[in-house]
Design a protein around this nucleic acid. Structure first.
Lengths: 221, 221, 221, 221
DNA sequence: AATGAATGAGAGTTCATTCAT
DNA sequence: TATGAATGAACTCTCATTCAT
């Protein structure tokens, strides 16, 4: 039950020198992503990945020194895809409304293929050292994309662009996750609501200041 | 690494008849919540819980038929706490602004003790049968709390109250999760931004209709 | 899975001094026999016995030092019953035919209450030291009863009365066990066949001498 | 102490592709049979089997999905051996006297290697689904072999051939088991008595009809 | 390079037995 | 004396990883 991963895993055991190697690696990554998305983290065993990929377990370990390196590779590849989505909507030439729509559509698309995989990669699976920088680059890129929306939009005037961008990112991701869990990703109403959410927050209808409510019940855990 | 849980677990094995039992059960639940929050699901082994609780593994199994029943019990106890928070802000007599603030403060409070625990309980750990009804009651209560905000507020006029409430719930949870991950739960700015988010969405600044953006890059996984 | 019994168990921890003790012991023995017969050896746990008997596990251990002593006590009590059956048919005044019928009926009766219990007691459950002498007395009495049949019947003229008696005992027990397994204990035809079996063997229709068959295939295990 | 087996086990986990596998499987089965025969069911733990076989516990589980599948495999292999013995004596060309001798010798041989193993396999150890059909085939073959003796022998004229065959099978098995327990399997006198038993029953010296004896003492358990 | 048999630490769970109350 | 909570050794089974072929 525990994650028996101790070794600090290096990136990839060997660089693909031949086309065959590259094909093997891709088969392994595809199989890994597939299992993660369809059957979840608990079914993600190295033996299962190797079998699904149609290679021997020995071959898998020839390319990935351990399980951590494997999941990191999957994550890296997934990040690239998501970044492509985000940047497609980052062009400042496009009107803001259209960019918001592109953002929402992109997020929906990201979660539509294998709804579980994204969440598993982001939240459930352990991170190796390799993943660190890739993950940082990813978060940076995401933040930039969201910040760009705020910056382009002077109306709100928040001086906490960075935190606001983070809130927006978390909110959109959370709403999409929940919709994915409910199987509503394809709903046009959902899309509309998400667009509304982003738009409204960017427009920042100013609330009246509120003081901290006096009594919040204690919460265990 | 895998979650080797198959048996469908019943609630609790035996009702405590002596005061000592109750103390043991509480120690176990506290230890379970603590491990879950501080060290995550992968460190959540029955033996670790028993040891942390200062009881023998046999005692743990005297009260919880299996690991699933244990995690379910933790979840149920946590749900009760969260529900208390939500209902504290559900009183329609209180002005909307104040209720929103209470909601945000409640969510922040919920995640402040063991930031990871909430997420782990909600997303990462498997659910037993026992948990099902408790979870349903919980989701219903959450939805009601959020819907109440929309209903009280006629301005938006959305006919999809339920979905909008779900979007808001997911968005707020996501933003809070992300803030918890960044260690910003105590920040007043964060609180302000979350209040702004809820307020803005409830006010539903109507965006101009947007057509689906033509090209969204494909996303693997 | 293993039988974790190591201690050499003494007979019974304390002699029943009061009527209440006697009642408790009987309740425990009844519960033990019941579980053994209805649910088999694998369900025969000390906790289950205590619960079925309606006493605490502590009380059980007050009277039986360990599980071995308990099962031995059950066995002893069962032996007494079987011996009573056997001796009822041992009276030499009664004609042989009638005695054989009584023997067969007795064996059928012995297995009719809880078909599984007899087998479990005889074959499946471990024997403690206490049981040794009781078991010896039992086997002796059985043998005597069977030998009496041979002795009364001079016709066969076997000089190996003891071994023949043992063969007869084993054969009858085996046939009855098999019938019990098939649920045929109540069948009159079965009874008739068993009587025939005993009768025929006692009459010892002399077979022609046979030489050892030359080739018997080897058998593993 | 209890048999903690619940899962319904499938046959064998994977077919051996290399010679090494076959050797491992055989070593495991041999070790399993050995432990069963020499030290009984209670010593039959998966770790003990693996250790005796000189392989790791992991290897054992590579080929047998669980303990049930292992014991079933042992049983199947044993059945095959016993069937070979029985059929060796089933040839109708051979005179009846010789066939009876072959049967008795076969049964003695079956129990001579590991006297306890046969009994344990037949009576004491739990059965998986795999074992079911093999066991049925086995019982059928046994019955056929015994029935053949009755059918060939018109003298008795019993119309209950099937039940008579079952009685004979049970009787012979019981007598052999008892002899095995007493360590008398090698005794020529025992062999002679067994032959006599079978012969006598087949010849069915007709007993005078007997009425059910009136009073059979009650038997507990 | 590739294969897949083998390994073994470690996780979940049971139950005979003890001992504070 | 009686109770039942507590104990922990022992057992079944998994899966990341290695290595002979």
């Amino acid at each position: 039950m525990a994650t028996r991963i101790t070794r600090t895993s290096g990136a990839m055991r060997k660089a693909p020198k031949q086309a065959r190697s590259r094909a093997t690696i891709d088969a392994i990554l595809d199989a890994a992503a597939h299992i993660l998305g369809e059957r979840g983290w608990s079914a993600f065993t190295t033996n299962a990945v190797a079998e699904t990929a149609g290679v021997s377990i020995g071959s898998l370990y020839q390319y990935f020194p351990d399980k951590l390196a494997l999941i990191d590779a999957v994550r890296r590849r997934h990040f690239d895809d998501v970044l492509a989505v985000l940047q497609a909507g980052a062009n400042p030439e496009i009107p803001r409304t259209r960019r918001i729509a592109a953002l929402v559509d992109g997020m929906i698309a990201v979660h539509s293929r294998h709804p579980a995989a994204h969440r598993v990669l982001m939240e459930e699976s352990p991170r190796g050292d390799t993943s660190r920088s890739a993950h940082d680059r990813f978060e940076l890129a995401c933040r930039k994309a969201y910040e760009a929306l705020f910056i382009a939009n002077a109306s709100g005037g928040s001086h906490h662009v960075r935190l606001a961008a983070q809130v927006l990112a978390g909110a959109l991701a959370g709403a999409v996750h929940e919709a994915a869990r409910q199987g509503q990703l394809a709903s046009p109403v959902l899309r509309w609501e998400l667009v509304t959410l982003v738009n409204a927050y960017l427009s920042r209808a100013r609330p009246v200041s509120v003081s901290r409510s006096e009594k919040v019940p204690a919460v265990r855990v």
